[in-house]
């Protein structure tokens, strides 16, 4: 069994080189209860940020609250759109709409209560952020959140938007 582990360990760095790819088509739930396929997500050729979060995740909320302060400027300058995917399950998914509105967020918010999209994008833990280009390719990602990470994210957004 050790051999197979070694095999995996060696294969991993190779795989890490392959970071881009199309956004997978998975069904999530909109805030109005309707089912939506991620294949319908688009931002008219402009970049999209896809952020995985949960109401029980402190750094996630810190990140989205920080970006929220700057979001209007980001949108104005680059046309970027942020999609916040909550992985709250049946226990806390009912808290998502009141929380989001209580924080005064302007993001598009979706629910992924059984982790279908989380699994399809191979997210281990939240927060996890993906940057998607105008053609629907995942071009950059970041796990975790530390104050200031939003600046790095925005640099990447600007690069994509050609600003």
């Amino acid at each position: 069994m050790k051999r197979s582990l070694t095999l995996l360990a060696f294969a991993l760095p190779l795989l890490l080189a392959a970071q881009s790819g199309k956004l997978p088509a998975v069904t999530v739930q909109a805030m109005d209860g309707k089912k939506v396929s991620t294949s319908s997500w688009n931002n008219g050729g402009k970049p999209m940020i896809i952020n995985f979060w949960a109401t029980w995740c402190a750094p996630c909320k810190r990140e989205l609250n920080t970006i929220s302060e700057k979001y209007a400027d980001w949108q104005k300058q680059t046309g970027v759109k942020l999609i916040a995917v909550s992985i709250d399950d049946a226990r806390s998914m009912n808290r998502v709409a009141p929380y989001v509105n209580g924080q005064d967020w302007d993001y598009e918010v979706y629910l992924d209560p059984n982790g279908d999209l989380k699994r399809a994008l191979n997210v281990n833990n939240v927060p996890h952020t993906f940057l998607v280009d105008g053609k629907g390719n995942v071009v950059w990602q970041h796990n975790n959140y530390e104050p200031g990470d939003e600046n790095e994210l925005y640099e990447q957004v600007k690069k994509l938007a050609g600003k």
């Binding site: 709409a97 989001v100 509105n101 005064d104």
Partner: peptide
Amino acid sequence: ANVTYSTKGLGVSAG
């Protein structure tokens, strides 16, 4: 059963 009411800046829920 769960009911929520929310608008910009305010969110309320009862369950």
